[in-house]
Design a protein around this nucleic acid. Structure first.
Lengths: 299, 299
DNA sequence: TCGGTAACCTGCATAAATGCAGGTCATAGC
DNA sequence: GCTATGACCTGCATTTATGCAGGTTACCGA
């Protein structure tokens, strides 16, 4: 009556090869929790324990070894299928992705060539602005948002965590004095930041997390303009690490004091299954995974 | 990034072998709609049409033939897995199923031996009563309900449609007169039925569907008692076809006039994945599929 | 030509699976 | 012994898949 689900066998194979749930999840594009659940479901159905859990991950039992031999046979037959699949190069049309200004110009711009190489017939519009285009109004196919949308016909998943911190130019610091503690910022320093009433996302209201009562002296709604102000020695301000660390004209201030934030990948319910939209999603996910260290640097 | 889901390949194989969505669905224990959706999803992902649709069902395309060769290879490797699985004979413990009185005593009783043979170490309590045990109170593991539950921590799926109709003994009809039309029932006939204020399910209040204004002369809350009354010539009454047609002492009255009803298979959210509960569900489903003709006879 | 039938599809409600955030557990290192 | 770390698990919210009821389409037979 009930047949063993092949997708559970596929999960088993990924875990056996990777030796760990998280790594297997990465291979299949799923979450580690899901891998654990699929494995437990398969074990319950087969009535056998397939792995023993160690600190390093999963070690096959004897029953697991026997099953693996059979599932490897399935995989050998399945291997030829991928080659017959319609390829990424076949995708045509255009894809518009709306992203935060800094993320688009400082991070994603370096990955656009890879997208073009993989999808030669697909035109990518990368719209990097202060504020996002509306998916509901079909202004864009995909958006990268600073906060999770809670309404509308959209689907959200987390893209990546990232960190922001304070930066200034060495010339500014030599002139205005060193910053040893956050409280030093309130004494004789010029701060650069966003315009409070023109914030396009509440997540950008972050100065109070550094120290209460900080007042911005020079303001812009553009992160790129803020970065230019800092690089020319006008003051101290908060930037995403992927911007501040990439600019040789800037050094971190209070380097271990970081502000955590998250990018969310947002698609429209009606279009998120389209091949070109899926290709855009895959590209974004691959880009942040490849350069996770830049988005969230270690101390 | 995105790997072809093996369960979609499994669905493809079932369709290719069965030549039809509905038959493939039966093999995998799913709904035909689901098979169609999985096939369309696989075709979209592979970018190829795998079947052509005819009146008889699905005919493989060339691309479908090529894929089938590879998926048959997977199936050959997978064939050994089923044999290594923990078997139904390993299940132990007890399983309590609460069912309507007539369904338990006239229909399921004939299938209990098959259950026992398949699960020698599993004890089956088949509780056949007017009224059902409570799943919420853990009085039973599975219930077969006359109506779909709309509240509580339970899961419902349709088990089977069935039909009821009027029956009487030939001796009663010879004495009291033939019934040519429903309206004849209001003239000189004795009706047998449920006690209106003791109905344990609103679906049992069906006399008005035969003809308005019928009054029951002899009443019992037990369908078995009602059947005994009819068989001994006391009157005319409504019985499920699987009871009335099985009793040689009874003949249908107004045979083409039938009352459609449905059995619902109900389980508890917390226990429905247990192997013994799944075994009970499988058994119920198999029983009604095997004898569908008895539950819902043709004219 | 029309009605019936078989097979599949669509829309909505329901059930199941999955992702996210935080917690637990075991082990290694100090 | 305590703390940090890595791997996995739990609970809840969200997303996806599935079942059910009814509709559509194409073909066959009267």
């Amino acid at each position: 009556m009930q047949v063993t689900d092949w997708s559970d066998l596929q999960a088993f194979l990924a875990i056996a090869r990777a030796g760990q749930l998280a790594r297997a999840a990465h291979v299949l594009g799923l979450d580690a929790t899901t891998m654990g659940r699929r494995l437990r479901r398969l074990e319950a159905r087969l009535g056998a324990s397939l792995f023993e859990q160690t600190r390093e991950g999963q070690v096959l039992t004897e029953a697991g070894e026997r099953l693996l031999a059979q599932v490897e046979g399935m995989a050998a037959s399945a291997a030829g299928i991928a080659e017959g699949a319609g390829s990424a190069a076949d995708l045509a049309g255009s894809l518009r992705i709306s992203v935060p200004e800094g993320f688009g110009s400082w991070f994603l711009s370096r990955h656009v060539a890879a997208f073009a190489a993989e999808h030669p017939r697909l035109t990518l519009d990368l719209v990097a602005n202060s504020g996002l285009l509306s998916l509901s109004k079909r202004e864009a196919d995909i958006a990268v948002s600073l906060s999770r949308p809670r309404a509308g016909p959209v689907i959200a998943r987390k893209l990546s965590d990232y960190a922001l911190r304070l930066y200034a130019s060495p010339a500014y610091l030599a002139r205005a004095g060193a910053v040893e503690r956050a409280a030093d910022l309130t004494r004789g320093h010029d701060l650069v930041g966003y315009i409070p009433d023109l914030l396009y996302d509440p997540g950008l209201d972050y100065l109070g997390e550094i120290h209460p009562g900080l007042e911005v002296r020079m303001r812009s709604s553009s992160i790129n303009a803020q970065q230019r102000l800092l690089a020319t020695g006008a003051g101290i301000g908060v930037l995403p690490c992927f911007i501040g660390d990439a600019d040789p004209a800037l050094v971190p201030v209070l380097a271990e004091r970081r502000i955590p934030r998250t990018f969310w990948l947002v698609t429209h319910k009606d279009t998120h299954q389209l091949a070109r939209v899926r290709a855009g999603k895959d590209w974004l996910i691959a880009a942040v995974q490849r350069e996770r260290e830049i988005l969230l640097p270690h101390l």
